[in-house]
């Protein structure tokens, strides 16, 4: 009798423990998580409409790489890859000349992504920009 009780308790206990071990990931999975989606994305909310005054820019996260959103002096929105094609430094907007400038070796691009001067071998990839309600959405051109 005693042996049988032990076996039953052992069986029931290990079953409960196993179920608990399985429920943990399930519960964690279902509960909303705080981290945002990563990885390769085809579009992203780069900024809020009106966030950028004319002739300013901001660097936003596009997947795992930086992108640059420029609001030109004329109020036109332009978005490009922020990764310099020379040595993958992050480019920045130079308001004075309305160009993109790489601080590492003074590479310079126009807002069409074309190389104006310096060592970059290729133009920057340009993205499509769309204003949708309060959001400025940048997406990869297909």
């Amino acid at each position: 009798m005693k042996r049988r009780d032990f076996v039953d308790i052992f069986l029931g206990g290990s079953l409960l423990a196993t179920i608990a071990a399985f429920l943990y990931p399930v519960v964690r999975y279902v509960l909303p998580s705080r981290s945002a989606g990563g990885g390769v994305q085809n579009s992203v909310i780069a900024a809020k409409a009106g966030e950028l005054p004319p002739n300013t820019a901001k660097v936003f996260k596009f997947g795992s790489a930086p992108g640059v959103l420029v609001n030109t002096a004329e109020g036109k929105l332009v978005a490009l890859s922020g990764t310099c094609t020379h040595l993958t430094c992050t480019v920045r907007f130079d308001a004075e000349t309305e160009t993109l400038f790489c601080p590492c070796h003074n590479g310079r691009f126009d807002l069409g992504g074309n190389v104006l001067s310096g060592p970059p071998p290729r133009p920057l990839e340009t993205y499509a920009v769309e204003v949708s309600g309060p959001d400025i959405i940048v997406s990869r051109k297909s």
Partner: peptide
Amino acid sequence: HESVQFIMSGVKFG
């Protein structure tokens, strides 16, 4: 594809 990527990286135990 993005949502599957999110499941794999963003969701706990996804």
